[in-house]
Design a binder for these strands. Sequence first.
DNA 1: ATCACACATGGGAGCGCTCCCACCGTACCT
DNA 2: AGGTACGGTGGGAGCGCTCCCATGTGTGAT
Lengths: 358, 358
Amino acid sequence: MTIRQPRVGGRARSGGRPTLEEVAARAGVGRGTVSRVINGSPRVSERTRAAVEAAVAELGYVPNTAARALAANRTDAIALVVPEPEGRFFAEPYFSDIIHGVGVALAETEVQLLLTFASADRERRRLAQYLAAQRVDGVLLVSVHADDPLPDLIEDLHIPAVVSGRRSASEPLASVDSDNFEGAKAAIGHLLGRGRTRIATITGRLDVYGAQRRLDGYRAGLSEAGLEEDESLVEPADFTEEGGRRAMSALLRRRPDLDAVFAASDVMASGARQILREQGRRIPEDVSLVGFDDSAIARHMDPPLTSVRQPIEEMGREMTRLLLAEIASVDAHHPRSARQLTREQVLLPTELVVRASS
Amino acid sequence: MTIRQPRVGGRARSGGRPTLEEVAARAGVGRGTVSRVINGSPRVSERTRAAVEAAVAELGYVPNTAARALAANRTDAIALVVPEPEGRFFAEPYFSDIIHGVGVALAETEVQLLLTFASADRERRRLAQYLAAQRVDGVLLVSVHADDPLPDLIEDLHIPAVVSGRRSASEPLASVDSDNFEGAKAAIGHLLGRGRTRIATITGRLDVYGAQRRLDGYRAGLSEAGLEEDESLVEPADFTEEGGRRAMSALLRRRPDLDAVFAASDVMASGARQILREQGRRIPEDVSLVGFDDSAIARHMDPPLTSVRQPIEEMGREMTRLLLAEIASVDAHHPRSARQLTREQVLLPTELVVRASS
DNA sequence: ATCACACATGGGAGCGCTCCCACCGTACCT
DNA sequence: AGGTACGGTGGGAGCGCTCCCATGTGTGAT
């Protein structure tokens, strides 16, 4: 028989990173005690804690995350999943703001943020594998389309998740959204205050829940002011500039007497403005124009566009808060199968930014 | 005495993700064999492999990464470290291109990309912890400044790493850079071909190695054409638009007879153009202008700017290739302390994009 | 038929941690 | 004095994998 040698090679002790056990030996305590100190358990005497901390500092000990993840069944990492090609991701300041908000919310925790793109089908599959492999404790999903299968997949996997922008009134996942309804209503209130009464709207794709809510807000704003609904003032579009142009043309043809336009996005407002100008309507003298999103476009338009600002960074913060809470609740109620996720729905207030176009 | 119960709770078998052992049982083979199949070892018979693959599919088995990382001492993840605040990161298309390149290089591997920002000091410390905790197998470093301590830190940790843009001629880490010298020389060659002989240059911050190389290329281009060096045609700046304006003013004051300007960045070229226009010099009739980077600015300038294109996406690809190679070589030569990293230096060719400004 | 050798396979040990139970000592009560 | 309680501590077991050694099992050469 041969005596089994301890495994040598890559993980040899010499020069490797120190382990818990080594710290314990150095501090003259047991492994469990060191673990308690590292994890900030209160059940450790002051003397012992100090001794362990000294040993940690001397050895430059850093816990091995893989071991911790395996033993504790958590990774202390969350993923921000962007179901878009990188190109669009970088083009839109939206994402930058979201990430910033997430970063703020994570700053005081030990949780790491991972960014993942998943536009192509192939990448989707990879992502599914990734999530199933339990590499993250939870997922932030931004910019999901109504027909995206990703959220359902995540739901099946029983992974804590938060989406930005509900997909419907009965969003099954926890979500953070801006108050599209009130935002639109405020825009209408503002236009009414300017003395406008024939207010048209250009909507986004109505299969997007947020677009529907903006339309609802438009209608509520008018009816609360005692104005009758008038479908000839409503023109659907698709969130694009070209769509904005077409819708504006249609509206002017149908209702040449309109004195204000509420576009459900800045991009569509930009398209509308082009047509208004071509047709010789002055902004804001003849027609007031209001957009939605308060994007860079709004600030740089001529004249600068009044727009409804969404608190994007705050949405990022809030999403993170919700996700961390879900993860914590899962840890608590152990049974992984029967867990209760909170599925909280948060609605953040919007703000009307008034500029020269109204 | 009490009989020790198997641990229950979160990690109970019921409903949990299947393990290797369960796949093995299902396929009627041993644990080792399943592991071999999963990892694509050739030492498995065709029959067995098929049986295991069937079991994997039936159970929806996905290996647990934490366990794998712990046992194999690798994570199959690399980090892209951006020592900039997120804002700048998103503002510059440079990063988007790099990431795209990295993504392409990673597409055919199982390696996951993590994005990490680390501008503030606090974040730096976190990052250092993160790396020490062995959460990634290697690091891609972009946009490092000459005085950044991060690369040295990474070097001390003996973590495979690749930087984009060497910090000096003797870069200690593996690096990928574009050929600034030849790029600049080509720009000068082009201007000479246009019949220009009094060619000035606006340099970047000369403590940035790349800026120095562009200046060297400028000089080499002139001397190869038999022109004498003339320091009155060289004006240092700092890569900013304002710097470009100042440098251009100084050059015009000193050398009103100049007939071409090579700016070491498009942004500086943009500043230079403003001054040239103010002074009534026509581009390109009176003065030819060439920039560097071929950024969006170059395409949108009036007139469109001739510029030296860097193969950014390819740099991302190449960095990834180098990093994966380093990681592989580390795995091979086990002893973690005495490892030999390749420290390869790659120089990618640039390309002159000729537009109306020259 | 015998040996040698390759190839295929099973399973023990161990990666570094967390969790939890058992145990120790001390303080406080009866 | 004996009992009880509890804060503090040590260390076994186990997380799910990889690695490698030991053990079959089949093939061709002798």
